[in-house]
Design a protein around this nucleic acid. Sequence first.
DNA 1: AGCCAGGAAGTCC
DNA 2: GGACTTCATGGC
Length: 261
Amino acid sequence: MKPITIEHMDLKQIADSGQSFRWKESGDNRYTIEAFGKSLTAEQRGQQFSFSCGEAEFQEVWSNYFDLGRDYGAVKERIDPADEYLCSAAAYGSGIRVLRQDLWEVMVCFLISQNNNISRIKNSIGGLCQVYGKNQSFPRPDDLAGGSAQDFERLGLGYRGKYLAALAEQMSGGGFEELSWTLLAADDEGARAELMTLYGVGRKVADCICLFGLHRDDMFPADTHINQIIAAHYGGDFPYKRYAGSLGVIQQYLFYYHLKK
DNA sequence: AGCCAGGAAGTCC
DNA sequence: GGACTTCATGGC
């Protein structure tokens, strides 16, 4: 398709923001992305983007994936001008978007993410795709059900291997589809509670799954970075209510700023 | 070299 | 319900 203009979007920032672990840099400001069974090469020059797919596929898959339906300018305008830290964070990561990713992939990736670092998470996910994915795609529940806890441990997951083995076992054979229906019907707190019943899923991972996989815009996953920010800059209490409707985006600005700066 | 990582489970009280 | 410990291992 012909190049298009998109505001408030920066591929490198998104790639480095720790929400997706499978983007591959294939050149300067150029990435190859796989999602929902499709593959896309995206290239950016300023606000001009070229995508390798056709118009129809872009509208059907990628426009949603990049969250193009959200007005990020409006989110930024709501930021309290007196909040210097958040203003700096939003300016620094002004091209971040909260990707609308596949639920199952998000569940697996963030199960592995706990007490882990981003580059190591990427390696583990890459290994899972290589060993269990058809054609190196992201493995579905039934694909992973063939692996044991020890298999996953040896792939570099460490102690998280047993969590993934339990998840794959529980989600194979239609278990994931069943859970999906439950989650889609639940409100935010119900979805969080349901996810927290899974072995190895606590509040933070559940909130990441809700935000990145279920697109619950008001989830605000509190990891080690966010906790440090709130302790150091907000006296232990962030003004959540002020940003109702966009807490997930705000959280990403804060996270990315603390991660990269 | 040693601390840290997009934390959670287990085990106390 | 909270504090404390343990869990694998690569990154930097």
